[in-house]
């Protein structure tokens, strides 16, 4: 049994080493970050999300948006992110304290979304884009998210949030396309993605 015990001590020792270094130490060092209070305008950064946007982040998770979109801006010396206009500064740990789960991502089949709410804040555009991506972004290979929308018969006046769709995707006369609650939440989340504000550890002029 002596040998077995020693073998297991070895397995344990090598493993605990990385556990301490890559799990526990990061958690102790930056796992308890708080919002930063900007004294100029009395605003907490990063700003808390609205309930609808929070729900939208769950729609973002459920439909696997992270497989094509990152939400991280690397510093200028570590990539082209700033040069492409995807942010005003690199992102830091504090930017993500509200994220559950994290959406850093590992792939850019599509562009980075760290600040998509800053680049494109039109709710109507996002709905149209989710419904039929190639119609507003020619050449896009983003999958259509038509299943987040509902076709319904127009009763009386058309709904105010009905999508303005032309061409082959347009509904039959007498019908309209309206976003489901999931689509509304997702768009609220996308529009809320805006990390252009400066933080003490990551000033904008960096």
């Amino acid at each position: 049994m002596n040998r077995m015990r020693n073998l297991f001590i070895g397995f344990f020792a090598t493993f605990i080493c990385s556990w301490l270094g890559l799990v526990l130490a990061p958690h102790i060092q930056f796992g308890g970050l708080k919002e930063y209070l900007n004294e100029d305008d009395n605003q907490y950064l990063p700003p808390a999300r609205t309930g609808l946007a929070e729900r939208g982040s769950q729609v973002y998770a459920a439909n696997g948006c992270i497989y094509c979109h990152t939400q991280q801006v690397r510093p200028a010396h570590q990539g082209y992110d700033l040069a492409r206009g995807w942010g005003a500064r690199r992102t830091v740990a504090r930017d993500y304290i509200h994220d559950r789960p994290h959406f850093l991502g590992t792939m850019r089949t599509g562009p980075d979304l760290t600040n998509i709410g800053h680049r494109q804040n039109s709710v109507a555009w996002h709905h149209k884009h989710l419904f039929a991506p190639a119609t507003v972004s020619k050449g896009s290979i983003m999958p259509p998210f038509r299943y987040l929308y509902r076709k319904q018969r127009i009763v009386g006046a058309p709904s105010p949030d009905a999508l303005q769709i032309e061409g082959p995707d347009a509904p039959e006369p007498g019908f309209e396309i309206v976003p489901t609650e999931d689509a509304k939440a997702l768009v609220a989340y996308l529009v809320s993605l805006n990390r252009m504000y400066p933080l003490p550890e990551a000033p904008v002029d960096q």
Binding site: L22, V23, P26, H27, F30, G31, G32, L33, A93, D95, Y96, I97, H98, D99, R100, P101, H102, L104
Partner: peptide
């Protein structure tokens, strides 16, 4: 869940 960036490293 731990905080966002720590989740990423975990």
């Amino acid at each position: 869940p731990v905080q966002g960036s720590v989740q990423a490293i975990v």
